[in-house]
């Protein structure tokens, strides 16, 4: 059962005539990892950023079609493109979290970073905050490294630790979906390995969509892969089929490194 259903979704950036995404239809399966791959400019980040409507921070973009999000309580789908009110946006973004290309620790302590999403969601109880921060840090394999310096600035952590902190921060609010926008492209191989392990670990609790330039990464961690090119979805299938037995010529050319 997909947690998100993208249906005939088109997207055009403000001030541009040509659409960046053309009628994309794609499911995001529950408790699975879906990788979006494709050469630069293919629209994979644009698609990812539509899924929590972070694009709407910059006015003037046009879109068409539907992106439906499963409501766990009612079992019904809600079209997130219809959201207009600020409190609905907040609710959406608490359900659909996002991790960015570069680590983005806030200028505050490690504890406050992880607690931030909880605090703005209205959780004030100190022991509950403490418990959830600890759980999130443990879940992000960061607890051992930082438990004795939670009150220190998050800026003092290494790049890999900062990225895991951002994941902990996103996990702490217990989202349904996590969107990863090239989460390891600024990290060294060891940190990358740690983040990959973590993402695989996380799919027990959340459904994951990940944009990556790194095809090995997509083949290592994802269950489903979507190959995009110039705003079109070329092929979507189970990861092993995409990498071992692609149906489309363009997919084959891309994954064998003949273009892109």
């Amino acid at each position: 059962m997909p947690v998100m259903k993208i249906k005939k979704f088109s997207f055009t950036y403000s001030g541009v005539e040509h659409p960046s995404l053309k009628s994309i239809t794609l499911p995001i399966e529950k408790n699975k990892i879906t990788a979006l791959i494709g050469p630069s400019g293919c629209g994979k980040s644009t698609l990812l950023r539509s899924m929590n409507r972070i694009h709407d921070l910059y006015p003037g973009n046009k879109y068409d079609g539907k992106i439906e999000l499963l409501d766990f309580e009612t079992g019904k789908y809600q079209n997130i493109l219809e959201i207009k009110k600020e409190n609905e946006f907040i609710e959406l973004r608490q359900k659909v979290g996002m991790i960015f290309q570069k680590p983005t620790p806030f200028p505050m302590s490690i504890f406050d970073n992880v607690a931030y999403g909880l605090k703005i969601a209205g959780i004030k109880n100190k022991s509950e905050l403490q418990d959830r921060v600890e759980a999130a840090l443990k879940g992000s394999a960061l607890w051992k490294e930082v438990h004795d310096r939670l009150d220190k600035s998050a800026m003092g952590l290494s790049g890999g630790q900062q990225q895991r902190l951002c994941i902990a921060r996103a996990v702490a609010v217990k989202p349904e979906v996590l969107l990863f926008d090239e989460p390891t492209s600024a990290l060294d191989p060891i940190s990358t390995g740690a983040i990959e392990e973590l993402i695989v670990e996380l799919k027990k609790d959340v459904s994951i969509a990940i944009v990556t330039h790194n095809m090995q990464q997509a083949s290592r961690i994802s269950d489903y892969t979507a190959f995009m090119y110039l705003g079109d979805l070329i092929e979507y299938d189970k990861t092993e089929n995409i990498f071992l037995n692609p149906k489309e010529k363009q997919t084959e050319d891309y994954i064998t490194g003949r273009f892109g």
Binding site: L57, M98, A170
Partner: peptide, 17 residues
Amino acid sequence: PAVLKESAYALGATKFE
């Protein structure tokens, strides 16, 4: 950095926050 603001919005922060 825009990405820093975006990551706060992505956690459900309001403009004021």
